[in-house]
Every structure is written in C-alpha cells, then in structure tokens.
Computed example of a mutant assay.
Amino acid sequence: MNEIVRQRIGATLLAAILLGIGVMAALDEIVFHQLLAWHHFVEIDNSALALASDGVLHTLELVMLVVGGALMLRLHETGQHAGGFRGAGFLLGMGGFQLFDGIVDHKILGLHQVRYVDNLLIYDLGWNAAGLLLLAIGYWLLRRARRGAASSQR
C-alpha cells in the first residue's frame, strides 16, 4: 500500500473515530444524564457542579463532532476519503468511548456509575459489553476495509 493511500486511510479513520466518540458521548449525555437522570459526568454533593460537569462533557462532545465533521467534509470535498474505513472508524470511536467510560470513568476514577442501584454488576456488564460489541464490529469492518484496499492496490 502506497503512502498516499495510507494517509487517506489514516485521515478518514481519524475523522470517523472523532465522530464516533462525539456521537456516543452525545447519546450517553442525552439518554443517561438527561432523559433517565441516572448520573452526572462527575457525581458530587453540589448539584450545580455536577450539572456543570455535564456541560464540560457536552462541550468536549461538540468539539469532537465539529472537528470530526470538518475533517470528514474536507476529505469528501477533495475526494480523499477512504470509503470503506468510515464505518469502521465510527464504530471504533463509539465502542472506544463506551469502554473507556465504563472502565476508566466508572471504575478507575469513580466519577460516576451507570446507575446508582444496589447491584451494579448487571449495569457494568451491559455497559462494557455494548462497548466491546461496537469495538468488535468496528474491528471486523476495519479488517474488511484493509483487505479491500490491499486488493485494489495490486
């Protein structure tokens, strides 16, 4: 695979991963923070600060969506996107965010839990399983796209 093709693939994956992270963060915030009110980004006794932490998450999510969208739009405008890699990157970004949130934010840093109930295990397993499933599908799509790109270079 030549260097130009690698650059197109890398740029497409980066843009799609950023979009995937932004969309999953938005889904998390909308569904779990706002509609279900299960948690804030940072659970603390001060409700104003807890709500402000959701605002920080929302800001970061919007940055990911704007930057990823701008990069993808530029790739499309210049004909530089690597079509088979968009879906793979998007799902890798979504799954990566979900798993990072489930392991790092929930367990290592203890910023919040999925839901505040007596038995967290089912929620933790479901949350992390969803992230793993998205990552697995994204990885499968990535492998398929790489095979397609390699065969088209011959």
Rank of each mutant, 00 (worst) to 15 (best):
L14R: 14
Q113V: 11
R144V: 11
L62E: 09
A82I: 06
H33E: 03
G87D: 03
G79I: 11
I9C: 07
H39Q: 02
A150H: 11
H58Y: 13
R86H: 08
A150N: 09
D101S: 02
L141K: 10
L13V: 05
R6L: 14
L75T: 08
G83C: 06
A48E: 01
M24Q: 11
W38I: 01
T12S: 01
V117I: 15
H76M: 13
I4V: 14
I17P: 03
G126I: 06
R147A: 01
A37C: 07
T59S: 11
R8H: 00
G69W: 05
L65F: 11
G148H: 13
N2F: 06
G84N: 06
M24W: 09
I21P: 06
G96P: 10
L125I: 12
H76R: 15
D118M: 14
G55A: 05
E29H: 15
H58R: 13
G138A: 10
W140H: 15
G95F: 14
V67C: 07
Q80V: 08
R74M: 13
G79F: 04
D101W: 00
S53M: 12
I103V: 08
R147D: 00
K107W: 07
R8Y: 09
G83H: 08
V56E: 07
L133E: 01
D118K: 15
M24C: 10
M72D: 11
I4E: 14
H81D: 15
H76A: 09
F32S: 05
H106P: 03
S53C: 03
L75E: 00
G84F: 03
L120P: 14
T12R: 10
L57N: 04
L27H: 02
D105W: 14
H40N: 00
L141W: 09
L121Y: 02
Q34S: 11
D124Y: 15
A48T: 10
L134Q: 09
I103C: 05
R115I: 04
L71E: 10
E61K: 12
